[in-house]
């Protein structure tokens, strides 16, 4: 409990036990958080971005075809401006090539995106791969 007088507040010397309990609980939470972060800081090795694409679905849209995919960054560093190139090939000949850029793919995280094609991917080889990134 806090007493306010003439704009100043004064904390009571004899607080209710709930104040100590809340304080103790908070202290444990903060200590646990700091402990976990310190442990992570010592054990986690900084590795450069490691990007991999998993194709999810191929759907027809009103003006073409959409291929959705997940992009995983398994490393402990975030990649920025990640360019992903999608390519449709038929017998070694490139039919269509499109790309998309992710602002960020966070460390140990996944992002979802899609590439649009005008040609039908059915029967053709689809290749979707990350082409580059910058450091954030």
């Amino acid at each position: 409990m806090t007493k306010s007088q003439q704009g100043r507040h004064r904390e009571r010397h004899d607080p209710h036990w709930i104040e100590w309990l809340t304080g103790l609980f908070s202290a444990l939470l903060v200590a646990a958080m700091l402990g976990w972060l310190t442990w992570e800081a010592f054990t986690r090795k900084m590795t450069p971005p490691d990007l991999a694409v998993t194709v999810l679905t191929t759907e027809k849209t009103s003006a073409g075809h959409r291929i959705t995919f997940d992009i995983y960054n398994t490393a402990t560093t975030t990649a920025a401006a990640v360019t992903v190139i999608g390519r449709l090939t038929e017998g070694g000949r490139v039919v269509e090539e499109n790309d998309v850029t992710f602002d960020y793919v966070a460390a140990e995280s996944k992002s979802t995106g899609a590439i649009l094609f005008q040609n039908d991917p059915a029967g053709r080889t689809v290749d979707i791969h990350p082409a580059g990134y910058t450091d954030p």
Binding site: R8, H9, R10, E11, P15, T22, G23, L24, S26, A27
Partner: peptide
């Protein structure tokens, strides 16, 4: 509007509470 402690209260009391 700042807060004060009673003189006999150690600083960490308010920190914890």
């Amino acid at each position: 509007g700042g807060h004060e402690l009673e003189p006999e209260t150690p600083w960490w009391h308010a920190f914890v509470r």
